[in-house]
């Protein structure tokens, strides 16, 4: 049987403003992940704004993984980041400054 590989869309057409995060995604079965964040519409004031990858031991309490990436600044632009050691939950979190906004499609490709 081939190793498991799936793509989970965890945020679809969500308008992100202020302090925001994707819904918790439990994926402790996976050994590696790539998180993709696509701007579905033209972002507003996302220059120099970075999103971070967060881990959780229980899906409720979150820690900063130390991994972060720049948000897209153009419509249809995709930001991405590999995540190679995690458990048992993943999410993307970002603190957007006043007036900044981005409509996102966040997908996580996971491989066992």
């Amino acid at each position: 049987m081939l190793p498991l590989s799936i793509t989970a869309v965890v945020a679809r057409n969500e308008l992100w403003q202020n302090q925001v995060s994707s819904e918790p995604y439990e994926c402790g079965w996976a050994k590696e992940a790539i998180v993709y964040l696509r701007a579905l519409k033209h972002p507003v004031r996302t220059e120099n704004v970075r999103a971070r990858i967060e881990y959780s031991p229980d899906g409720i309490r979150w820690v900063d993984s130390g991994l972060d990436f720049a948000l897209p600044t153009q419509a249809d632009q995709i930001s991405w980041i590999p995540v190679n050691h995690f458990g048992n939950w993943l999410r993307v979190a970002v603190d957007l400054p006043d007036g900044a906004a981005i409509t996102v499609l966040v997908s996580i490709n996971l491989k066992a």
Partner: peptide
């Protein structure tokens, strides 16, 4: 944007080992 809002909220299922704090 044309999607009914009641469907917009849906997310992907997960493979869980039912871990608790």
């Amino acid at each position: 944007d044309a999607m009914n809002p009641s469907y917009q909220q849906h997310t992907h299922p997960q493979l869980s080992n039912l871990s608790h704090w």
